[in-house]
Every structure is written in structure tokens, then in C-alpha cells.
Design a protein around this nucleic acid. Structure first.
Lengths: 105, 105
DNA sequence: CCTACTGTTCGAGTTACATCGAACGGTCAC
DNA sequence: GTGACCGTTCGATGTAACTCGAACAGTAGG
């Protein structure tokens, strides 16, 4: 098949393809902003750990937010055993938009 | 009437009521971001002057963007004779979200 | 294997936002 | 006053995003 259909590895945009407007939009949702702050202070977390901070958000909704953040270039989402590790792309973001992350945290 | 119906003076949110998520959302549109950059570099402008930078945007659409930015607390829109003066609320924003504006400009 | 577990994807319903022409409101010039 | 001018508001339309349950995919353990 030409297209990748497995859900194993998800696509992450290259640093050069990360657009400021997309980043700002991704951060403009309270749930997502809160999650970014969690990752910034606590470091990489599993999805389940992230969800503890947002107990009222169903997992499909939460997964949607993770997708938005990932496609905007804010986080990485990598398989780790049966779970997945969510991490902030801080070095990338600091390189591309210096000071931005610091100012929203 | 109880409600203000005149279009003469428009409502601007108090500094304390300006929310980060609203600011980020307002900045997440390319046209609006461009306008903020114009105001930051060129200083206060009339609406007509702002529109020169975005020649393909109809004036009603442009006015909508101005409303979004104003309600988010990013700009002031004040009458000035027959025209209106659009200005960046830079001091307010720097006080409430230090470094944010600098990082997006 | 087969089951339980973690998290994504699909699909449908709802809501919010963008866009733009037309109508309106206020101001200045004459 | 009245006509031109600058800009907002209204109303209608299309589109994108949010929400969430149900179904699915990959992994580890017994």
C-alpha cells in the first residue's frame, strides 16, 4: 500500500514546517494549554497520566486534543510498550519561536 | 434604553479581564497577526491605513477581525473625527503577559 | 491463543467561526 | 441640510472545530 495505515507511529511535522498561527491556535484552548503546562513542569507523561489532570474529558476528546497539539508541532506522541509517551517539543519550539513558550507558561 | 446601542464608542475589556486563551486565539489568524505586527512597527493607524496592508480583505471582513482583536483585549478602536484610530494595547499586554507580544513579533 | 489494557480512529451531531454584500450610523465639507 | 465618506453592524451562507460513544489496533500477560 502506498499510504501508511498503521496507527503505530504518528506523524510529527518537521521543525521548519511548524507555523506560528497553528501553534497559537493549538494553545488557545484551555484544556490544551493546561496540558502543555503540565508537560512543561512534570516532563514526559503517559496519556493516562495526562488525563488525570483533566478528569472530566472523555478519552476520545482528549485524544483529539493530543492530535491537534501534535499536528501543530507542540508535542511528541511516541509508543512506549503498551502505552504512549507524550512529551513537549520544547527545544524545537524554543529554537523556532524564542520566548513564546516561556511567556505562556 | 438600558443597553448601549450607539456605535460611537466600542467596548474594550479591562486588563484584568483579558484572558490568555482569547489572546492566543485572536493571534492565531494570519490576517489578524499581520495587523498586530503592523501596529507594533508603525504605531496607531486608521482603519483605512490598516486595510492597505490587506488589500484583498473586504471591509466588513476586516471590521470583523478588528472586533475579534478588540474584544480579546489586543487593540483599541477609538473614534477620531470621521475616522477611527486603531492602536495596539502594548503596555497592557506587556503588563499582563510579559514577553508574549515580543515573542510573536 | 485469548483476554485485558491503552490509546487512536471513525462517524454523527452540535456549535463556533470566517466571509461578504447590503444596510445603517455618525462625521465633515460645502 | 444634504451629500460624500469612513467604518460598523446585520443577515445569510459555508466551513472548520469540538464533543463523545462505539469500534478498532497494538501490546503485554496468563
Amino acid at each position: 500500500m502506498a499510504a501508511t495505515t498503521t496507527t503505530r507511529t504518528l506523524h510529527h511535522p518537521d521543525l521548519d514546517d511548524v507555523e506560528l498561527t497553528s501553534v497559537l491556535f493549538a494553545l488557545s484552548d484551555p484544556t490544551r494549554l493546561e496540558l502543555i503546562r503540565l508537560l512543561a513542569t512534570e516532563g514526559p507523561q503517559t496519556v493516562a497520566q495526562c488525563q488525570i489532570a483533566e478528569p472530566d474529558v472523555p478519552k476520545s476528546t482528549f485524544s483529539h486534543h493530543l492530535k491537534t497539539l501534535r499536528e501543530a508541532g507542540l508535542i511528541r506522541n511516541e509508543p512506549s510498550g503498551r502505552q504512549r509517551t507524550i512529551s513537549l517539543r520544547r527545544a524545537d519550539l524554543d529554537a523556532r519561536f524564542p520566548g513564546l513558550l516561556d511567556s505562556v507558561l
